[in-house]
Design a protein around this nucleic acid. Sequence first.
DNA 1: TCCTCGCTAAAACGATCGCTCTATCCAGTG
DNA 2: CACTGGATAGAGCGATCGTTTTAGCGAGGA
Lengths: 202, 202
Amino acid sequence: MGRYGVPMQTSSTRDRIVVAASRLLQRQGYVGTGIKQIAQESQATLGSIYHFFPGGKEAVAVAAIEHGAEEFAALLRTALEGHDDPAEAVAACSRRLAEELGASGWTDGCPVTAAALETLGTDSQIQRACAAALRGWEELVADKLLRGGLSARDAREVAVTVMAALEGAEVTAQVSRSAEPLHATGRQLARLVRSYGIPPRG
Amino acid sequence: MGRYGVPMQTSSTRDRIVVAASRLLQRQGYVGTGIKQIAQESQATLGSIYHFFPGGKEAVAVAAIEHGAEEFAALLRTALEGHDDPAEAVAACSRRLAEELGASGWTDGCPVTAAALETLGTDSQIQRACAAALRGWEELVADKLLRGGLSARDAREVAVTVMAALEGAEVTAQVSRSAEPLHATGRQLARLVRSYGIPPRG
DNA sequence: TCCTCGCTAAAACGATCGCTCTATCCAGTG
DNA sequence: CACTGGATAGAGCGATCGTTTTAGCGAGGA
């Protein structure tokens, strides 16, 4: 809450730090992003960052990853809710991802993959935050498939596959600077979902 | 060639550098891996590294990524060749990946993903090496699908999906420290391939 | 024997890393 | 008004980064 008791239009310093760190992390990874760069990009100073995040760089990264994970989940939710047919819903996810990725110039992909891969050996909080994000996304897809008529067992296994394929397709799209991998994967995932049969909607 | 004119059992210095760099890159990414760490791990010195790779860290990384990409391609090739049915062949790939990943303690995943994500914004040679690796792997899968009876168009699109899903599933498996994402994805990819119908084998 | 040259060895450079520290600012309270 | 405490500002710490530089090693040719 900002001054005058109303929500501030320009975010609070803490929010600016989290948002800037989130964007930088998904573009350059954890080790590739410096605290001073976060300070510069968020119009904050080192003092402010260490004031709000006494845990240092890792604490900033955890908050940033949680923020990015929620943004990504919101994108998935709206794409999934736009269609009753789960197969079309899954395809819509890949289309939305392709739009966002292309609009960012192929730089802003999955907000956790890069950070997750860099901190694999460690037992850092970053690891846990990334794992939690993945589980949450899978659950969103699994719920949609469940409501679409798949069994609990099938829904979970297909959801794991869908999220894995979307992540991989996004990386492929970034590397090849083309939306085609995401579109192709979306079509094939829709076909996979359809292969489980869609009960007629009452 | 080593001394006595016979191939050396312990590789040449240059090979040791490439192999060590490849393993470090896939575990810690590009920025997370230091030249001095590569020197220590490969039992070489800075002088040797800069002698064989005047291009510095980036040149070492390119050679290391090409090495890792070929290793990965070899794994895919043997897994694909083990089965006539392309659906079973794809499932075999995910099983082999799960074996290797588990044996490494969930640390040695795809040898290019981490490095690729870190160098996205740049126009470095690393980018190009990663893109080439992905294309090569896709081609291996596409060839198998073609020989399995899929049309050229279907084979390419399914191959893109298979490689994306395998990469994503490997990341998921690493983060969750479990082989299950790879196994589930393998089963679903086999189902997807089977949905294109298998012509009876003569 | 001497010289060459591919290769190894390590000291040292400037830059940047994450982080600590002290100083200052400013709205709220008595 | 003085005082307090959250928030900001930035200089500076030791460490490490990628790289350069210079010196030394040892096998092969003249």
